[in-house]
Computed example of a mutant assay.
Amino acid sequence: MNTLAATWDWLTDAANWSGENGVSRRLVEHLLLTVVCLALSCVLALPVALVLGHLGKGGALAVNLSNVGRAVPTFAVLVLLLLSPVGAYGWWPTIIALVLFAVPPLLTNAYVGMRGVDADVVRAARGMGMTGSQTLFRVELPLALPLVLTGVRVAAVQLVATATVAALAGGGGLGRVITAGFNLASTPQVVAGAVLVALLALAVEGVFEATRRWLAPAQTRRSTG
């Protein structure tokens, strides 16, 4: 109980939220790192998954290859990158490691979503004279969007939790709160940092759930219109 009380005192102390090493700055760094890695992961994974899902070729191989990344610990990838020439380029080792970690759920969910679209609907669209790109963006993608967004949500939450490894590479983010707590032998600070990461992950989860609920009525209107 004393640890919980001390953790609450640490979190409610305004001095811990301001300054160069304050929680406010670390939170902004954490969010920025998450957004950058998520954007890069989407740029790399989604076009490949959508095209392969549309064509129905090569997707299984791509998904299986991407899933190999789940078996490799992000920390191990980060250490290897830090020991390589890439390690001299600031945040890039952390960004690369996190992007590799986020690609599998994005690629898998987008591909499965595209392949799950009713074949009769696709044939009907083609029978109406739609081109391949029109069928992809106006028929298949809207129907696959819920599963695509699920992949983005999973990747975002995983990135929030895993971005704490940036502190091990000398980067910023909420992981610095935790590592500083270990260095100071301050259990309340370590617990406070873990709580902040958990709350941020829950907030991101909530944002995506709200987005899903907001998009659901619009998708229903399109399908019944």
Results as ranks from 00 to 15, higher is better:
A5S: 15
T7D: 07
S24E: 14
R26A: 15
V28A: 14
L32S: 15
L32K: 15
L32I: 10
L33N: 00
C37E: 07
A39E: 02
V43M: 09
V43G: 08
A45N: 02
L46W: 06
L50I: 15
L50T: 11
L52N: 07
G53Q: 02
H54A: 13
G58K: 06
L65Y: 01
L65G: 12
N67R: 11
V68I: 13
R70Y: 12
V79W: 00
L80W: 04
L83W: 01
S84M: 04
P85Q: 10
A88N: 13
Y89T: 11
I96T: 11
A97N: 02
V99I: 07
L100S: 11
F101C: 08
L107G: 08
A110R: 05
V112A: 15
V112C: 05
G113Y: 08
V117C: 03
D120P: 00
V121K: 09
R123G: 14
R126Q: 15
M128C: 12
T135R: 12
L136P: 02
F137C: 08
P142Q: 01
P146N: 05
V148P: 04
L149A: 04
G151Q: 00
G151Y: 03
V154A: 05
A155D: 03
L159E: 04
L168H: 06
L168K: 03
L174T: 09
L174Q: 06
R176I: 10
G181L: 04
A185V: 14
V191H: 07
V195I: 13
L196I: 01
L200Y: 09
G206L: 09
V207E: 06
R213P: 10
W214S: 13
A216W: 03
P217W: 08
Q219M: 14
R221W: 11
R222M: 11
T224F: 08
